[in-house]
Structure formats: C-alpha cells, structure tokens
Design a protein around this nucleic acid. Structure first.
Length: 525
RNA sequence: GGCCCCAUGGUCUAGCGGUUAGGACGACGCCCUCUCACGGCGUAAACUCGGGUCCGAUUCCCGAUGGGGUCACCA
C-alpha cells in the first residue's frame, strides 16, 4: 500500500519532545509501507508574522540531528510545493469560495463582542451554545447592509444542526460526535487570512495525505475538518490520534513553558542539572527557553545519541512485545504499526531516557566515542585543535579508563578534567576523610617515595608492583589506594587508580601527591 | 460546565476470558570491587470502584470515580 503521512510543525523556534514522537510515528508508518510511500513536512505558518525561516531552522536541524529525514517539504521541495501554508493563500481562497458557493459556509458580520454575549448568555442559562446566525449574510443585500454599518465579515462554516458523525480512528476505534455540538467555526478571518483547520484539510488533500497521524488534542477538532472535507467533496484520510506525551510523573500534557514546575520532579531536575553542568564546562550559554529537557536541542547539546532518543520515544505509546526495548531503526520500521499504539497518555521519564542513552553509549565503538567526544573536550578548552595523534592516544586511553562512567558524550568534560589540568582542586570532604585519617599521610608519603622509583609507569605493572609493595609491609590495598586517589585526582570517585596514575603520568602524579602532603602538614586554619 | 478520550506497580509497558499478572526504568538489599560506574542475584511495588455477561473476568458490556484533552477571527 502506498501511504503518505505528514508532520506539520508551526515554526516556534523549538522542537518539542512530544512533537518528535508524533513525527517519528508518521515517519515510521511511511517507512513501514515502503515503496512510493512518503513522509512530508509541512510548515503551519498561517498566522506567522515573525521570521519563519529563523523559527523553523532549529526544528529542521532537530530532525536532521535525529536522522528523521522528510521526503518532501522545506529545503527538499517536492511535487506539491510550496510546503508553507503562508504561501498557499490563493489555494485556500478557492476552497472558501467553493464552500460559500455550495452553501456550506456563510459570511458572518457579528462582532467579537456580539459573539461573546451570545456565548455568555448560553452559559448563564446552562444550555449548550449555538450561534443564532443573526449576522449571517444570506444575500448580497444583507452583505451590503452589514458592510454599510461598517461591519467586517468573516467566513463561517454552516455546520449541520442534527445528526452525528462516526469517526473511525485507527487508534481509538469508532468515535461519535453529534453535529449540533459543533460551532460555526471561522475559516477565513476578517482580514482575509485563513484559519488553520481550513488550510490543514486543503493541504492534506492537495498533498495526497492518506493517513493523518497526530496528537490526541486534535481529536475534537476532527469533526469540523471532516465537515470541510465532505463539503468540498474531498476524500477523507484515515485518522490516527495518538495519546499525548505527558509531564513527568503526571498525566497532564507536556508543555515547554513549565520548566520550573518540572524541576520539582527529582529525575527531571537531575537530568537538567547534569546537562547544566556540562553546558557550563563547555561554555555554552543556557537560556531556560532552549536548554530544557522538553526540547530536543538539550539532548544534542549535552551529548545524547540520536538513536537513544528515538528509541526511547518510540516506546512512548507503542511497543513491540513484552520484552524488546532496544530496537534498531530497521526493527522499528519493520515492526511499527498503529494497531499497537496505546490509547492512554504516556508520561515522559527523563531518567529512563538517560538509561537508554547510557546503554547506547556503552555500545558505541571506541573510535566513534573518540570522534564524538573530541569536540566536547575542545569546547571545554581541555585540548586545542588540531589534535595531535599523541593526544588522541591519550584521549582514547582516558575514554577506555572512564568506561561506563560516561553516560553522555558531554560527561567526558566533567570526568576527564583532572587528566588534562596541571593542578587539581581537592574535594574537601574526600580530602578530610582519606588524607587526614590517622596514618594516611605517612603511608602516602612512603608510597610516594616508592612510586618515584618505578621505571615502568603503566597500569597493570603498577598494580602488580603495588601489591608486592603492600605485601612487604603487611598492608592491604585499601590502606593506600584512597589517599593516593584523592591526592592524584582530587576526588574520591573515578576510574581505577592505576589507570589514573598511568594516564596522569609519573611526574604530575608525584607533584600532586606532594601538594596533597603539603596541604596535610599545613597548619589548620 | 458541555462534548470527547483514557484507566495494569512511582514511571514506560506485556496481556487480546482460565497466567504463581511478564519485562524495563527507578527504589532498596546482597554479590563483584581500590571509589564510582558497569555487571550479577534478589526484594518491595499494579489490574480504580460497582454492577452485569459467562462455569470463569485484569481482559467483554454498562455505570460511577479519577485523570486528561477540547470548546478562539491560536496552531
């Protein structure tokens, strides 16, 4: 079956995580059907007055980063161009004229105040609001009269006032609406511009969209769209209304405007804090507008892998079976189906996303890690381009030593700092615990002298020799290792000590130990 | 409030009439261990409620409750 799906972002400047999930399902559905099937990107900019290009760029960038290419749309064009609603006004005018000619729409001259008054009256009488059509112009004479009064007209849909619509939704099954509940929605504003719903259905028809896969909040908009479609004699696409992506730990719709509130969620806060630390280390200016785990940019900036993000998102509302969680793109494409999309909202869990990310990074080949992490080190000013082969060897060694402690690419700048800096700042708590403990400094001093005599400063050898050293003195590894670690790395946590010693090197290690010892002996302030 | 949608552990989910209700994230504990991380093992943790239908309901139907979406000359 040849299928055409679309995602229709409005250029807001941000790619929202919920939007990506919707786009992903559209993309997968089209890819699933293969052949001539297409996924198109259409820009919903019917009422944009600002710079569409600037507001669209981050969105397109996000999709490129996620490797979710569109077959037709902005920048790539296609047989139905233009793909910008702002450029399709003439087409919409034809549709509105046809609606008017068919008696499915009318010109209306009610002012906003008059409309409001009717609405309020209905409300206070506790009856459903239905417009009286008092200012409907049925004839040219009516029209002339209203306009003579200085009124500005809009075009409204003349909705049926009886009967019902049974919508077959691919996710929800049959959904019933009664026409009388539907308002006479405006399709063309008094300034001549067009309302989204009109543009939307006309475009879907023109772009030959077969499946409208969109978020649930559009479900209640569907009757009026169906009405327009039928009034125009256009075929109906199949509809699939996806559950929306909800806030962490809640069932409310995720919104990018509520960063403050989400930060009260511990997992969300931790992911945000982690990202902020990386941003600070690489000198990235963060504004709450963009640097927010609800916005896709965040993940690119701190070094998540696109595959991890996509894998996490595909599982928000869809599943393959009872156990498969890690899926390649090929597996997703092969297995995706709307039948397995769930009906209820799924809340966004940044902790689980991080778990996917950690798993993907763990599986990334060392050469790829190296290539991807170098830019982070450069931005953090830990290394400078051009990166010599010698430095690359060192970085490769560091990445290996850090191992699974690296969860996102940006972690390298948080965790590898002491390998590059000349001096380390001691973590005060760790220093107190490990170096000010009784006997610790003396043992460290002795070990330092022994270390200075080592000719081969290589991890495996150091470890083996250290064990001999300790055995000869009747000590255990635990008696020495913590103090050495804090002295050399500044902190109590990190890679294996002997890896650290090797990478830091003899000279710098000894110097750092000396400094730690000086600090121990310095009079307490 | 009207209309519509949804309902399995804290979270993501499997389940499509009979299961010790399965997996994952997270939490906790133990093991591994120089710390941390990884890994291994284990523990706690769920079918919203009430009616039907049926020999039998988490599963089907109805209702209630709860949650959510939507009701613009926004998209």
């Amino acid at each position: 079956m040849k299928v055409r799906t679309r995602f229709a972002p409005s250029p807001t400047g941000f790619l929202h995580i919920g939007g990506v999930r919707t786009a992903l399902f559209n993309w997968l559905f089209a890819r699933r059907h293969g052949g001539e099937s297409k996924y198109v990107l259409r820009v919903d900019d019917t009422d944009q007055e600002r710079n569409v290009e600037a507001a669209l760029a981050p969105i397109l960038h996000g999709f490129r980063w996620l490797e979710l290419p569109w077959d037709e749309g902005p920048e790539v064009g296609g047989p139905f161009a233009p793909y910008f609603q702002s450029q399709r006004g003439a087409r919409y005018q034809i549709a509105v004229d046809a609606l008017l000619a068919a008696g499915k729409a009318y010109r209306d001259y009610a002012t906003a105040e008059e409309m409001d008054a009717e609405r309020k009256a209905a409300q206070s009488e506790k009856r459903p609001f239905q417009y009286s059509r008092r200012f409907m112009a049925e004839t040219d004479a009516d029209r002339a009269r209203f306009e003579g009064e200085g009124r500005k007209g809009v075009v409204r849909l003349k909705m049926p006032r009886e009967g019902k619509l049974v919508l077959q939704d691919l996710v929800r099954g049959a959904v019933e609406f009664s026409w009388a509940e539907e308002a006479d929605h405006v399709v063309q504003r008094s300034d001549g511009s067009f309302i989204y719903h009109l543009a939307n259905v006309v475009d879907d028809r023109d772009f030959e969209i077969t499946h409208v896969i969109r978020a649930e909040e559009h479900l209640s908009n569907t009757p009026r769209q169906v009405f327009i479609l039928e009034a125009l004699g256009y075929p109906l696409p199949a509809y699939a209304h996806l559950p929306y992506v909800a806030e962490p730990g809640s069932k409310r719709k995720l919104s990018k405007r509520k960063l403050e509130a989400y930060l009260k969620n511990p997992d969300f806060a931790e992911v945000h804090r982690h990202g902020t630390a990386i941003a600070a280390a690489i000198g990235l200016e963060v504004s709450p507008e963009t640097f927010n785990p609800v916005i896709v940019d965040f993940y690119e900036q701190v070094g998540y892998l696109p595959d991890a993000v996509v894998n996490y998102l595909v599982l928000l509302g869809w599943s393959l079976d009872d156990k498969t969680e890690i899926l390649t793109r090929a597996q997703m494409i092969e297995n995706f189906s709307l039948e397995r999309v769930i009906g209820g909202p799924a809340s966004f869990d940044p902790a689980k996303l991080l778990a996917f990310q950690a798993q993907y990074l763990r599986a990334l080949p060392p050469e790829d890690k190296l290539r991807e992490m170098i830019p982070f080190l450069e931005r953090a000013d830990l290394i400078r381009p051009p990166v010599s082969d010698e430095t690359k060897v060192k970085i490769r060694r560091i990445i290996e030593a850090l191992g699974d402690r690296l969860k996102v690419l940006g972690d390298i700048v948080l965790q590898a700092r002491f390998f590059f800096a000349e001096e380390v700042a001691f973590d005060e708590k760790a220093f107190a615990k490990r170096l000010l403990a009784p006997g610790a400094a003396d043992r460290l001093a002795d070990y330092r002298e022994w270390l200075a005599t080592r000719e081969v400063f290589e991890a495996a050898r150091l470890e083996a020799d250290t064990h001999e050293y300790l055995a000869a003195r009747g000590l255990g590894l635990g008696d020495i290792v913590h103090a050495v670690r804090v002295a050399v790395t500044g902190t109590a946590i990190g890679p294996g000590l002997f890896d650290c010693l090797e990478i830091v090197g003899r000279q710098v290690s000894l110097r750092r130990i000396d400094r730690a010892l000086e600090k121990v002996r310095a009079p307490r302030p």
